[in-house]
């Protein structure tokens, strides 16, 4: 494929990662990505299908896939599993009524062969909302501590204020990098770079 070579040449020095954003609908996946990308976050319609965003994070190129979370779309999630380096599971921290649903979907994802080994970042989004659950409450509601198959971390954030988005992404990129490109995590810590936007 000639084209790929052209593009590869452009990015030879860069290392790519493929990150999949999943979660129930209304969690804030699209909003987080737009915010990270410096785009306007008003007037986002629910995602019918998927969005792809590519941006640089430090010296990594992130290909981020944002797939719609409506129940009818969830069976299609597995079409996106191939070559996933990291899974970012986004939670609407104010959605107490669906935490059970959220937990089940997450745990069933983690049994997928094709996601084996992917790092897992759980974004406890919408922390700006008055009634949102804390990251600790969500960690327990989703029973994250029972997860032994994936490196995971829960991170409170807000797509509206932008709080903690970059640092969360930073954790996941470093975690993937330490697995794919380095033998030890220590070497990378020093060069953590947060410049996304």
């Amino acid at each position: 494929m000639g084209l790929l070579t052209v593009i590869r040449k452009n990015r030879q020095k860069e290392k790519e990662m493929r990150i999949l954003f999943l979660g129930l609908d209304n969690a804030g996946k699209t909003t987080i990505l737009k915010k990270l990308n410096g785009e306007d976050i008003t007037g986002i319609s629910p995602t019918l299908g998927f969005n792809i965003k590519t941006f640089a994070h430090g010296h990594y190129t992130l290909n981020i896939w944002d797939v719609g979370g409506q129940r009818t779309l969830r069976p299609y999630w597995r079409n996106y599993f191939e070559q996933t380096d990291a899974l970012v599971w986004v939670v609407d921290s104010g959605d107490r009524m669906r935490m059970q649903d959220c937990k089940q979907e997450l745990h069933s994802l983690l049994t997928e062969d094709r996601l084996a080994g992917a790092s897992l970042l759980v974004f406890a989004n919408k922390q700006d909302l008055q009634g949102s659950m804390t990251d600790t409450e969500i960690r327990d509601a989703l029973d994250l501590r029972s997860i032994t198959t994936h490196h995971w971390k829960i991170w409170p954030c807000s797509a509206v204020t932008g709080e903690n988005l970059v640092s969360g992404l930073d954790w996941v990129v470093n975690d993937v990098a330490s697995r794919l490109y380095y033998s030890s995590t220590t070497s990378l810590r020093a060069e953590r770079s947060l410049a996304v936007i």
């Binding site: 922390q127 909302l129 009634g131 949102s132 659950m133 804390t134 990251d135 903690n164 640092s167 969360g168």
Partner: peptide, 18 residues
């Protein structure tokens, strides 16, 4: 070590819910 060293800055803990 990552967990402690790199803990996310805590956001105000909201506990009430209307």
């Amino acid at each position: 070590p990552l967990q402690t060293k790199n803990a996310p800055p805590s956001l105000p803990a909201a506990s009430t819910h209307l």
